[in-house]
Design a protein around this nucleic acid. Sequence first.
RNA 1: GCUGGGGUGGCGGAAUUGGUAGACGCCCGGGACUUAAAAUCCCGUGUUCUUAGGAGCGUGCGGGUUCGAUUCCCGCCCUCAGCACCA
Length: 880
Amino acid sequence: MDEKYFAKKVEAKWQQKWAAARAFEAVIDLSRPKFYQLEMLPYPSGNLHMGHVRNYSVGDAVAWYKRLKGFNVLHPIGWDSFGQPAEDAAIKRGVNPRDWTEENIVAMRGQLERLGISYDWSRQMAAHRPEYYKFDQWFFLKMYELGLAYKKKTQVNWCEHDQATLSNEQASGGLCWRCGNPVTKKDLEQWFFKTTAFADRLLDDMAEIEAGWPASVIKRQRDWIGRSEGAFVDFKITTGESIRVFTTRIDTIFGVNAVVVAAEHPLIREHDAEFSQEVRDAIEAIRLEKLVPADRETEAEKNGVDTTLKAINPFSGEELPVWVGNYVMMEYGTGAVMSVPGHDERDFEFARKFGLPVPRVIESQRRGESEPENAGDEISSAFTEYGVLVNSGEWSGKESNEAKRQMTAFAAANEFGEAATTYRLRDWGVSRQRFWGSPIPMIYCDSCGVVPEKYENLPVELPANAPLTGTGESPLAKVPEFYETRCPNCDEPARRETDTMDTFVDSSWYFFRYTDPHNQTMPFDPEIAAYWTPVDQYIGGDDHAVMHLIYTRFWTKIMMQLGLVDFDEPVKRLLTQGMVVGETFFDESSGKKIYFQPAEVKVERDAKGKIISARSTTGAELKHAIERMSKSKGNGVDPDEMIDIYGADAARLFVLFAAPVENELVWHEAGIEGAARFLQRVWRFVWKWKAVLSEQTLGSPGSNSRATANARKLRTKTHQTIKRVDDNLDSLQFNTPVAALMELSNAIYDIKVEPADASADEIFAVREAVTALVLMLVPFAPHTAEELFANIVGNENGILANNGRFPEFLEEYATADEIEIPVQINGKLRSRVFAAPDADRQTLETLALGDAKVREHTDGKAVVKVVVVPGRLVNIVVRG
RNA sequence: GCUGGGGUGGCGGAAUUGGUAGACGCCCGGGACUUAAAAUCCCGUGUUCUUAGGAGCGUGCGGGUUCGAUUCCCGCCCUCAGCACCA
């Protein structure tokens, strides 16, 4: 141990020792409880960014904490290595995607190792390697057999920028998840996974995980699945057939003024010949609207056209016009709605625009609010609440809920409708017209049709090369050696599917593979997986709240159906960490933001450190803001550089300390300096007390002597800290336990005794405090903690080999001899008295009333009441 | 627009869930050590007034409950995020 702390040296040393000892390789051990700690696997872009550092630092803190608590921990990592960036790099730079990916993996693994994250590298997986994607294909075949994989031609989400299709989840918000550009629609034939078959389970099983997942993620998934209970109702049209609509408000059906259908509705195509050219053109215009990326700022104006077809309201017998409306979506419900302008805002807007009648059929039950407007009064808005039916034939006077039930039953009995549940969730479109993905193992045969590849022929390997153009056609379709094959059924020449699978397929089950990463015949051995899974703690960004996390839940339900697992939720506890952001400086006088690198900015601060002004070196006045990190904005931070300057432990400690995990983390270099300073401080007192620390063995029974006040105080602080840190880590808080450790470190400094002059009690107290502090430091700064620990125990075998455990909390030492009791007068703090922690009411009251400062405030006044909260405070209520 | 989260010093944030608001850290100021600087250590640091002992104000705003409210209730304002014609 050097007198001064050299982070680089210590970190390199322990990284080497860990690797040599295979310290983090997980082995099944039935004698201990298991703990599966998982972080979302990275895409191998080639560079770790601070978001990764945060994610893995948090995960490692949990992994170490659990190890110290006696758990058998599995902490693996791998690579989400299929996907578009490799292909883009190939197109731009002419490299081979496979080489590019492998090189990036090597580079990033090096970075992770320099960070000292305690991964079991023997279990590393990479999605692009045939031994892994073989089982993507295996699952695909299983899904096909179960009828859960199917092909259909449909309008898919299309990103013009990426030249690729997107699932609904990936196109959420109308923007491409990868590049952020607006999404359009395109007609394509695609493979789908039937996620909708599990809509109810995905929704209902959330009850199992609700307690361990962030409420926001649960909510977003609920909204995304969007279960909606209502009814189908058939409106006969005068030409004979009928239009089926979905409604959640069948109670408003007497208020229908029209049936409105989507432009793509089959009925429109069928009756095309009957429409005037004018109507036909208008419908076509509405259909084309959707192919243009939507402007997210402004809601599209209602638009529509009367088809001149007529429909009959099955309840009232009224004849209604059939319109095409731009606000009706073919993909939801039946692609047709009954328009009730009196009680639906969209229908109201539509009716107003086209001058359609607005009947009222529901009145509010609340008194005074619903006096029906006088005939002729203009209705100013839709009344969307439940109420009492009016002008609704035999149902008039009934309450909405009651009416819904009866009217649905009536429709069913008369065979023009039925109760129905619809979902917003759609099936998962998994075909990608891309090279760098897992090939879909299906074959097209002229005589046999669609034939699945045989299991024994898996993996269907990607060719070494393919012409990559990024134009939206599958590159594999240009590689005859790939697609030319024979039919597994009849052995005649046949053609392979040339689309590849969505990369989200890989990440849907990768963490099961970690449990049995070298299995050649199965994705994993169910028995081995049964020991490690489900995941106990999963950590990642909340940008995957809907996409990855809904797919992996879906996948688990399928695995359950296949008998691979015996649970239906893969992740017990989920933690979503906030983004890492940094300060940017920019000039927007030209109307566009021009960012400046930190070196080009001069900042002037006031006495308190607040920025008064910022100028560029060229003299321009700059604005500043906190924004997502990126090189081009000048606020990016290179993890390697930080490790180089301050050390991995300081970087990790800062990232954990600077903000609660779920919050945004504002990167300030001064902060990491503070973290490094703290580690130096700890190092210094271990050095100072080294001689007396190492002459004792770890874990010797505590001396009960608490003779000197110094020693007593420190022991109290030590045990209070142990409790705090344990509780905090257990509830996934990382900033507060670091603060607690800093306090303990300050308390060790406060003892102000030189080792040579210290009493036996003081030495004991310091040893206890230092040992506890070092062990509790492990989750935050493992290298430093290992080195310090080695100096305490006198060997370099490492904490795990020494069976190091989280320090034991001893309640008897956690209570101070004397505590400070605030004394309030009329709720205002006026004085403090000292008393034993268990002093009773009477003692405290007497003590408080006798206090000199209290007397000044109570003299000449009547004490009305004395509130005593033992161990907390005294409040004296006076009058006069 | 709907839904959810959140407003605490110059900054990031604490506060045992109704009991000393501002822990811990950053920034900033002062001092010690040093030829000097860095590093380190010590002190100060919500705000206003002050006879230097304190006193007033203070957790987005306005009310309420309570001996006591950052915490509970009612009504506003602001902000971030998600969804956005889901019938």
